[in-house]
Amino acid sequence: MSRAALLVLADGRFPAGGHAHSGGAEAAVKAGRITGAGSLEEFCRGRLHTTGLVSASLAAGAALGLDPVELDGAADARTPSPALRVAARKLGRQLMRAARATWPSPELDALAQEFPKGAHQPVVLGLAARAAGLGAEDAAYCAVYESVSGPASATVRLLSLDPFDATGVLARLTPELDRVARQAVEAARCAVGGGVAALPAASAPLLEIGAEAHAAWAVRLFAS
């Protein structure tokens, strides 16, 4: 396996559609919950320990070889908001295209055929990591990092936040990213024997509610 493949997959410029999504930041900015670097950090911390943990465990599970169809069902069960399910499948479909072009794999082909309109993004991410020769920990790291880097870069655009401040937020969160990635991999290993019910089901109600409100706006910068 190539260690550098992790950098390719985790790169924010990997062409998988993430740039058009704010990870809930646009709704939170409008509601006054993110107003600067301090509140961005709190928002990202909350997202990391909820959505981030769940996504990372799904990605780690897929990388370990758990049945992706079952994982997709587990992702649906952990995503109450229909708008977020749509966004997750859209992003999953876009990541699938990029991953199949980058790391061709029969497993990716099979999942693409099973879900022509997209499986949940973290499941595709885990399978993409597997196709790239990466492990469960790598997949979990990609997922936890995405869970905070998306809102941070979106907030730079939404609030004209100083980009150095936004990057500082991400840097300060890295010890927690380590912890959550570890937790996610442990849970995924439990799910190998114990089934997908062993995966975490942490939720962030404000993210779900915010996503539903956001999806109904007539004017918005981000798709979610």
Binding site: P15, G17, G18, H19, A20, H21, R157, L221, F222
Partner: peptide, 13 residues
């Protein structure tokens, strides 16, 4: 996502 050129050039998915 506030970047029209990205959607037609850098990330066309």
């Amino acid at each position: 996502g506030a970047c029209p050129h990205t959607a037609i050039r850098d990330d066309i998915s």
